[in-house]
Simulated scan of single mutants.
Amino acid sequence: MSSIRTLTRRAALVVAAVGAGFVLAACGGGSGDDNGSGHGAHASASASTAGAHNAQDVSFAQGMIPHHRQALEMARLADGRASSAAVKDLAARIEKAQDPEIKTMSGWLKAWGEDVPAAGGGMDGMEHSGSGHAGMPGMMGEADMTELENSSGKAFDTKFLALMVEHHQGAVEMAGVEKDKGRYGPAKTMADDIVTAQNAEIGEMNKLLGKGSGASGQSGSKG
Score class of each variant (00 low, 15 high):
1 M>T: 11
2 S>T: 07
6 T>W: 15
6 T>G: 15
8 T>Q: 15
9 R>P: 12
9 R>I: 14
9 R>Q: 15
11 A>P: 14
14 V>H: 15
16 A>T: 15
18 V>G: 14
19 G>T: 13
19 G>F: 12
21 G>T: 13
22 F>N: 13
22 F>H: 15
24 L>M: 08
25 A>P: 13
30 G>W: 15
39 H>D: 13
40 G>V: 10
42 H>K: 11
42 H>E: 00
43 A>G: 07
44 S>N: 13
44 S>H: 12
47 A>E: 13
50 A>M: 14
50 A>W: 15
52 A>C: 10
54 N>P: 10
56 Q>L: 09
58 V>D: 13
64 M>K: 06
69 R>P: 01
69 R>W: 06
71 A>D: 11
71 A>C: 11
72 L>F: 05
77 L>P: 05
78 A>H: 07
80 G>Q: 02
81 R>G: 09
81 R>Y: 13
86 A>I: 03
86 A>E: 06
87 V>A: 01
89 D>T: 14
91 A>N: 03
92 A>I: 09
97 A>N: 10
98 Q>M: 04
98 Q>A: 00
100 P>A: 06
100 P>V: 08
102 I>A: 03
102 I>L: 03
103 K>C: 10
105 M>W: 04
105 M>L: 04
106 S>G: 09
114 E>D: 13
115 D>E: 14
118 A>Y: 10
118 A>I: 12
118 A>K: 14
123 M>V: 10
125 G>E: 12
128 H>A: 06
128 H>I: 09
128 H>W: 00
131 S>H: 11
133 H>F: 04
135 G>Y: 09
135 G>Q: 13
137 P>C: 02
138 G>Q: 04
140 M>R: 07
142 E>C: 08
143 A>F: 02
144 D>H: 06
144 D>V: 05
148 L>D: 11
150 N>I: 11
151 S>T: 03
154 K>R: 10
155 A>L: 03
156 F>Y: 04
157 D>S: 04
158 T>Q: 03
160 F>H: 00
160 F>A: 01
161 L>H: 01
167 H>E: 04
169 Q>F: 01
169 Q>H: 07
170 G>M: 06
172 V>Y: 05
174 M>Q: 09
175 A>E: 05
175 A>W: 00
177 V>N: 03
179 K>C: 03
183 R>S: 11
183 R>Q: 08
184 Y>T: 07
185 G>L: 08
185 G>H: 07
185 G>F: 10
186 P>R: 00
188 K>A: 11
189 T>M: 07
192 D>N: 08
193 D>P: 07
195 V>S: 03
198 Q>A: 06
198 Q>W: 00
207 K>P: 04
207 K>S: 03
209 L>F: 03
210 G>E: 02
213 S>G: 04
213 S>R: 06
215 A>R: 02
216 S>N: 08
219 S>E: 11
219 S>Q: 05
222 K>G: 02
222 K>H: 03
222 K>E: 00
